[in-house]
Write a protein that binds this DNA or RNA. Structure first.
Length: 601
RNA sequence: GGGGGAGUAGUUAAGUUGGUUAUAACGCCGGCCUGUCACGCCGGAGGCCGCGGGUUCAAGUCCCGUCUCUCCCGCCA
C-alpha cells in the first residue's frame, strides 16, 4: 500500500461524533487527529479526534497487517485517514463517556496524512498550560476541547443573534475600518496615509457615526458584527480589538429600542443555554444603582446593599465620619449577615482591599446582643451616641452575629471601594449561584459629568439625546440633565450600551457647546454628522453588545482571552506572530514617518 | 504611569535556615503486552533554575537591576 500524504480519492464519510450502533457493518472513511494511542503489542487502539468528537479506531494485524504496521509509528496529533468497518464493541467494553462509545471502527486501510512533532503541551481540556506557551502555539491550544467549545459557543450565539435581529428587520451593513481621527474618549489606533503625507486614518472605537448616517440614509434598521479598536491598557475583560454586535434603528424611543434588543439577546441566550432567563429584564435607574450598589453595573445575583447613613452620623464625634460629611463626602455601610465570625486577619485583608480601591480605611462593628453601644464590638463605638448606633442597627437590619463595615470619604471613592468590597464579599461568602444569569437594564444615566479637571464631558458619547424634559437644563445646569441612555448589565458586567441619539441639528450643536466644543471644533470633527442631520434625519437610536464579554460570562470564563481565537497579551502583543514589530526604513519613508531613536537602540 | 503575583526538565509543579549529584508527575525515547480508552509493566534520556550584576568559602534560595506573563488601580467618549 502506497502511503501518500495526499487524499487521492479518499473522501470523509462521517464526523467523529456521528457513528453509532445503527451504522453497524458500514464501511466508513474517517479523518482526524490522534488524541491517544494505546498499543497492546498486537492490537492498537487509537482515539481519533475531529472538531465534533472522538471515535475509537482499531488496528488488528490479523485483519489488516499493513495498517497495523503503520500504526506502530503513530504518535499524538498525527493526522490520519482511516477506512474501515463500523462494529459494536465487545460485551463490557462500552465507553459511556463517549458519544461513539458503543462502537469502534476496524481499520482496513490507513493513511498518515501528516506527522506531528512532540508537543509543547498536551491537547487535553483538563491540563492547564501557562498562558505564554498556550498563546505562542494558539493553534494547538485551540485544539483543546475546552477552548474549542468556547469558540463554538461564540459562533452559535452570533448565529442566533443574527437570526433574531434579521427576523426583526435589521440589515447587516458594513462600515469602514479606516476611519477619521476624532480624538475624544479612548485613545485611537492611527494608520498613516501614504497618499496623503502627514495625514492619518484612525481605527474606529465603534461605528457610531456611520450607523447614525445609515439611519439618515433610510435603512431604518442596521446591525453589524464588527471589530472595534481602543488603544488603552488591557485587562482580563479588555482587549485592544474587540467585537461588538452593533445595532441601530429608526422610529423608536428608548423603550422600543430596549425591547428589540432584549428580545434578540434573550432569544439568543435561551437558544444557547437552554435555560429560561429572566425576561423581561428588570430595570434600575442609574441613581438607584449608585445608591444601593455603588456602581452602574450591579451584580444583582446577591444583596448586600450599600446603606447611606450620612445623615445619621453627620454630627457624630467620630471625626472619620463627620469629617467626611463636612468636606462634602458621604458615609455608607454594608451589613454582612454572619460576618461576626471574621477574624482580625480577615478584617485587615478587607481593609487593605478597600484601600486598593481608593478608600482611606474601613471601619467595622461586630453586632452582639444588647442595645446602643452594648450591641457593638467596635473600635469606635465609644464615639457614637447610643441612639445613633440603634438607628444604624435598625436601618441595616443588623442582628447579633452580623458585621457592619463602613466607608467614609468622597462620594466617588466611598461608592467605588464599597462596590468592590461588595463583589469580593459576594464571592468570598459564596452568596450567589455562578450559573445564574441576571440581565439588568440600567437607565436614566446623567448626560454628562465633570472630569477631574472640572471639564464637562459626555458620559456615554456626545450624540446621546437628553431626556426631552431635560433639554432646558443643557443651558442652565447641564450636569443635572439625564440622558435617554441605557446599559445592559449581565451578572455585574456591562455587556451593552445604548441610547436614543440626537436627530436634531440644533440640539446636537447645543450638546457640543455644553461639553465645551467650539463651533469650529464641532465642525472639523463632526461636521459631516451635523450636515447629515440637516437633511431629514429620522428619530433613531441603538445599542452595541460587547460580544466578547457576553460569551465570557455565558461560558463561565474569567477572561475574554478564553473566547477570542487569537488574543493579545497584557502588553498588546501577539505571542504567535510577534506583532507589533518594526517596519523597514523604506516602508517608513513611503509613509512619511520618522521614528525617534529610542535610548535603548 | 503605579501596586501585587509568577518565571526551575517539553509541560505542570516541589525545592526546608544559603550547603553533596536540583526532585516528582505527565509527556518524550527504547523494550514487553490481543480489549484498552488518562491502558499496564520494565528501562532510559532530558536543566543557561528568565536574563544581567552583587553579597558569600558556597546562591534555584539573599540583595539590586532588567525582561516576559498575569491580576488590579489609573485609563477605557
Amino acid at each position: 500500500m502506497e502511503n501518500s500524504t495526499s487524499l487521492v480519492g479518499w473522501k470523509r464519510s462521517h464526523h467523529l461524533n456521528e457513528l453509532n450502533i445503527s451504522h453497524n457493518n458500514q464501511t466508513v472513511i474517517l479523518m482526524g487527529w490522534v488524541q491517544n494511542r494505546r498499543d497492546h503489542g498486537n492490537l492498537i487502539f487509537i482515539d481519533l479526534r475531529d472538531r465534533e468528537g472522538q471515535t475509537q479506531i482499531v488496528l488488528d494485524p490479523a485483519y489488516a497487517e499493513e495498517a497495523h504496521k503503520l500504526g506502530e509509528g503513530i504518535r499524538s496529533e498525527f493526522v490520519l485517514a482511516a477506512k474501515g468497518q463500523v462494529r459494536p464493541r465487545p460485551e463490557g467494553m462500552i465507553n459511556e463517556n463517549l458519544a461513539t462509545g458503543k462502537i469502534e471502527v476496524l481499520v482496513k486501510e490507513l493513511k498518515i496524512l501528516n506527522a506531528c512533532e512532540s508537543l509543547p503541551f498536551q491537547i487535553q481540556s483538563q491540563i492547564e498550560a501557562g498562558e505564554t506557551i498556550r498563546l505562542k502555539h494558539r493553534y494547538l491550544d485551540l485544539r483543546r476541547p475546552s477552548v474549542k467549545s468556547n469558540i463554538m459557543t461564540r459562533i452559535k450565539f452570533v448565529k442566533a443573534m443574527r437570526k433574531a435581529l434579521e427576523d426583526q428587520g435589521f440589515l447587516d451593513i458594513e462600515t469602514p475600518t479606516l476611519y477619521k481621527s476624532t480624538p475624544e474618549g479612548a485613545r485611537e489606533f492611527v494608520v498613516p496615509s501614504r497618499i496623503n503625507p502627514g495625514d492619518f486614518y484612525a481605527l474606529p472605537q465603534s461605528p457610531q457615526l456611520f450607523k447614525q448616517v445609515l439611519m439618515v440614509a433610510g435603512f431604518e434598521r442596521y446591525y453589524q458584527v464588527v471589530k472595534c479598536f481602543r488603544d488603552e491598557d488591557l485587562r482580563a475583560d479588555r482587549q485592544p480589538e474587540f467585537t461588538q454586535i452593533d445595532c441601530e434603528m429608526s422610529w423608536e424611543e428608548a423603550e422600543g429600542i430596549m425591547q428589540a434588543m432584549e428580545s434578540a439577546v434573550s432569544q439568543a441566550t435561551t437558544e444557547l443555554t437552554g435555560k429560561n432567563i429572566n425576561s423581561p429584564f428588570p430595570k434600575m435607574t442609574y441613581s438607584e444603582a449608585m445608591e444601593n450598589y455603588g456602581c452602574d453595573k450591579p451584580d444583582t445575583r446577591f444583596d448586600l446593599h450599600l446603606i447611606n447613613i450620612s445623615k445619621i452620623v453627620a454630627s457624630s464625634d467620630f471625626k472619620v465620619f463627620s469629617g467626611a460629611i463636612n468636606t462634602g463626602g458621604i458615609v455608607n455601610c454594608i451589613r454582612i449577615p454572619k460576618g461576626g465570625q471574621f477574624t482580625r486577619k480577615d478584617l485587615d485583608e478587607l481593609t487593605e482591599f478597600v484601600q486598593l480601591h481608593g478608600a482611606k480605611g474601613m471601619a467595622w462593628a461586630k453586632i452582639q446582643e444588647g442595645e446602643g453601644a452594648d450591641s457593638w464590638q467596635s473600635p469606635f463605638s465609644k464615639f457614637l451616641l447610643d441612639t445613633v448606633i440603634d438607628e444604624i442597627n435598625q436601618l441595616s437590619g443588623a442582628e447579633p452575629g452580623d458585621l457592619i463595615v463602613f466607608g467614609a470619604g468622597s462620594y466617588k471613592n466611598t461608592k467605588a471601594s464599597l462596590a468592590a468590597l461588595r463583589l469580593k464579599l459576594g464571592e468570598k461568602l459564596n452568596l450567589y449561584d455562578e450559573h445564574q444569569l441576571n440581565y439588568l437594564w440600567i437607565t436614566d444615566f446623567p448626560l454628562m459629568e465633570k472630569d477631574e479637571r472640572g471639564k464637562m464631558a459626555a458620559l456615554h458619547h456626545p450624540f446621546t439625546a437628553p431626556r426631552p424634559d431635560d433639554i432646558p437644563l443643557l443651558e442652565t445646569d447641564p450636569e443635572k440633565a439625564l440622558a435617554s441612555a441605557f446599559d445592559l448589565v449581565l451578572n455585574g458586567n456591562e455587556v451593552g450600551g445604548g441610547s436614543v441619539r440626537i436627530h436634531d441639528q440644533e440640539l446636537q450643536k447645543k450638546v457640543f457647546r455644553a461639553i465645551g466644543l467650539t463651533e469650529e471644533e464641532a465642525e472639523s470633527k463632526f461636521g459631516f454628522l451635523l450636515e447629515a442631520l440637516k437633511f431629514g434625519a429620522p428619530p433613531h437610536g441603538g445599542l452595541a453588545f460587547g460580544l466578547d464579554r457576553l460569551i465570557m460570562i455565558l461560558t463561565g470564563e474569567k477572561s475574554i482571552r478564553e473566547v477570542i481565537t487569537f488574543p493579545k497579551t497584557n502588553k498588546g502583543t501577539c505571542l504567535m506572530t510577534n506583532a507589533p514589530n518594526k517596519v523597514t526604513g523604506e516602508e517608513l519613508r513611503d509613509l512619511h514617518i520618522r521614528v525617534h531613536k529610542l535610548e535603548s537602540e
